[in-house]
Design a protein around this nucleic acid. Structure first.
Length: 423
RNA sequence: GAGCCUGUAGCUCAGUAGGUUAGAGCGCCAGGUUGUGGCCCUGGAGGCCGUGGGUUCAAGUCCCAUCAGGCUCCCCA
């Protein structure tokens, strides 16, 4: 591919014409779906304070410990946001959105950055759609959040997806559970995989979703968190399941589902697809009742999720879902001679003012070359203007689909083209 | 951070046990039609064979390094 002087950095990709339309399609679908749930869009800066991210996500997570694009400038520490929840919560606090009353239903779409090794479905700059409900502790909020995520995929037409559901309880019950897990694994410690041995101390719950074969039999006998859930969390979990049943949203209880970010409480969920390969998570989320207070705001229960748009596109492609491509051109003006080019320049405006897309040759090429370009851009019509037309005050209107043409006055040509474009 | 694989025209790829001026299809440009697209024919432009070093009389082809990419582990969206 030659040797250009400059190329994108590792894990950063350009989205080119022909591809951009697919992004528009899903972005439109997302915004419209969020609108029907009456979630409101929020846009936050791509750069955030490093402290916010470290505090919000947790210093022990991979994201914070080794995947941040961060730099300093003067006394300020900046980081390219690796996820959207902490920034959304920051904005919620900073602008006292809780004073607006009720519970705030927010969503965002935008680029996120993590310095990981890129692979299928994972880029260093990737895009997420996320939604958050702040201010409700009710399981109804969890259900609405999940319903939004589920509706998006249903409306996209994705069929084979699995919603995994679990409750990770309150910090207290989790602490008890962690100890119970250590007690259980301790006698078998030497049988655990190397990775799991490391996690034994740091985060024994992560042993549960280990993919190492030698861990599987041990995990099957391990105590489950549901046996250690506090009464309120257990009730909340049952309530959510009833809501999901009422909504007709199928789910699979996964007692081993443990999500990577520190801030989750109670509800944890994940949407997976077999079409994705190794990175099979389409989206995931959960409840984070302590985060707002942790970041300096009023104690505010909250729940949310994020879905990866790159992965959504992969799934859509695997299913051959029509996302659309480049739009065809309505009218291309083919000219012959300088006078005709001047005529064309003047007449582009009335064409465009009616809403038609209109274009012309910018290189003074032959008519044949102009026709080829009109064809390449899938022009619906060609307006041909040369000496004859200029002399008679008319234009040749060519219907490129029907391969027919006739000579008419410009206003008449305009009327006909608008009629077809609207039909 | 680790492993495996790949790197020849804009794109998809051929390039024989290392041997003279590096190929195809598609795409692009032009001509065949001095005022017209899609099909067809003809011609053309476009490659320091990712980069650097080494082996050799000779390297796209072998070796080493490096860079980039893909997939996987880890982790996550």
């Amino acid at each position: 591919m030659g040797n250009p002087n400059y190329t994108t950095h590792l894990g950063m990709v350009d989205i080119l014409p022909g591809d951009v339309e697919r992004w528009h399609f899903i972005e439109n679908l997302i915004r419209d779906t969020a609108r029907t749930f009456h979630f409101k869009e929020i846009r936050t800066p791509i750069l955030e304070d490093t402290g916010l991210i470290a505090r919000g996500i947790g210093g022990d997570t991979d994201i914070v410990s080794k995947e941040m694009f961060a730099f300093e400038r003067g006394d300020d520490r900046y980081v390219l946001r690796p996820e959207g929840t902490a920034p959304a919560v920051r904005a919620y606090i900073q602008h006292t959105l809780h004073q607006r009353g009720g519970s705030q239903k927010l969503f965002y779409i935008g680029p996120m950055f993590r310095a990981e090794r890129p692979q299928k479905g994972r880029q260093r700059q990737f895009h997420q759609f996320g939604a958050e409900i702040l201010g409700s502790a009710d399981a109804l909020a969890d259900a609405e959040t999940i319903a939004l995520m589920h509706t998006l995929y249903r409306r996209l037409g994705v069929a084979h997806i699995t919603l995994k559901l679990n409750s990770v309880g309150e910090p207290e019950s989790r602490k008890t559970y962690r100890e119970a897990l250590r007690d259980y694994f301790r006698p078998h410690f030497h049988l655990l995989s190397e990775i799991s041995q490391k996690r034994f101390d740091t985060n024994p719950m992560r042993i549960l979703d280990s993919k190492e074969p030698e861990d599987r039999p041990l995990i099957e006998g391990a105590p489950l968190i549901r046996e250690y859930l506090d009464a309120d969390s257990a009730a909340h979990y049952r309530q959510l399941q009833k809501h999901l049943d009422r909504l007709g949203i199928p789910y699979e209880e996964d007692p081993y589902l443990v999500r990577g970010l520190d801030y989750y409480t109670r509800t944890a969920f994940e949407l997976t697809s077999s079409d994705l390969g190794a990175q099979d998570a389409l989206g995931g989320g959960g409840r984070y009742d302590l985060l707002v207070e942790e970041l300096g705001g009023p104690a505010t229960p909250a729940v949310g999720f994020a879905v990866g748009l790159e992965r959504l596109l992969i799934v859509a492609d695997a299913l051959n879902l029509p996302l659309g491509g480049e739009k065809r051109l309505d009218v291309y003006i083919v000219t012959r001679g300088d006078e005709a080019r001047k005529w064309a320049l003047k007449h582009l405006r009335p064409l465009r003012d009616t809403g038609l897309s209109a274009s012309m040759d910018l290189q003074a090429r032959s008519m044949k070359a102009q026709m080829k370009e009109a064809d390449r851009e899938a022009a619906r019509f060609v307006l041909l203007v040369g000496d004859d037309e200029l002399a008679s005050g008319s234009v040749t209107l060519r219907d490129m689909d029907a391969s027919t043409e006739e000579t008419v006055h410009f206003p008449e040509a305009l009327r006909r083209m608008v009629g077809v474009a609207e039909g």
